[in-house]
Amino acid sequence: MQRPLVKGLAALCLLATLAGCAGPKQLYSWNGYQPQVYAHLKSDGKSSPEEQILDLEKGLQEANAKGAKVPPGYHAHLGLLYLNTGRTDQAVAAWNQEKALFPESAKYIDFLINNMKKNRS
């Protein structure tokens, strides 16, 4: 009579152990962000700014569909890509989104916006 109880407890312990191995949910949805930044910095011509923008926008859509957050710098990098392709309004919108999500980036984002305005004048 004790054998079924022992087997049941062993199965319960095994199940609890396996459930603990699942790990915590990731804080951010990276969606190819790191390879995009690498491609941008590498500037090897394999990925144009337009292609990078499309990939990052797709990543944003996927994150939004999952209800996930994108990491710090995602919108800032997207804004720089918009600026490099002449889309200043979209750049400012992306940078303001970065500031809203990560207030600690405000000084950097304000620097980017002010620098862009100086260069346009």
Rank of each mutant, 00 (worst) to 15 (best):
E50W: 02
A39N: 05
Q34S: 11
L41K: 14
S43W: 11
W30R: 03
C21K: 10
Q26H: 10
S48I: 00
Q36M: 14
L41F: 12
S29A: 12
L27N: 13
S43L: 09
K42W: 10
S29M: 09
Q52C: 07
P49E: 02
A22S: 08
G45M: 06
A39P: 04
Q26M: 11
H40S: 11
H40L: 10
L41D: 13
E51A: 15
G45V: 07
H40Q: 13
A22Q: 13
Q34P: 04
G45Y: 04
A39T: 00
Q36F: 01
K25S: 11
S47D: 06
E50Q: 13
Q34E: 02
K42V: 04
Y38H: 13
K42L: 15
W30D: 15
Q34I: 12
G23I: 05
Q52N: 12
D44C: 04
G23H: 11
G32V: 03
K46P: 01
L27T: 15
Q26F: 08
L18Q: 09
S43A: 14
K46F: 03
G23Y: 09
W30I: 08
L27Q: 13
L18P: 03
C21P: 00
A22L: 12
G32C: 07
N31L: 04
C21S: 06
S48F: 01
E50N: 08
A19D: 05
E51H: 15
G45F: 02
A39W: 11
A22N: 10
L41R: 13
H40A: 09
A19T: 07
A19P: 02
G32L: 04
K46R: 14
P24W: 14
D44W: 11
S48Q: 10
V37H: 01
P35V: 00
A39C: 03
A19H: 02
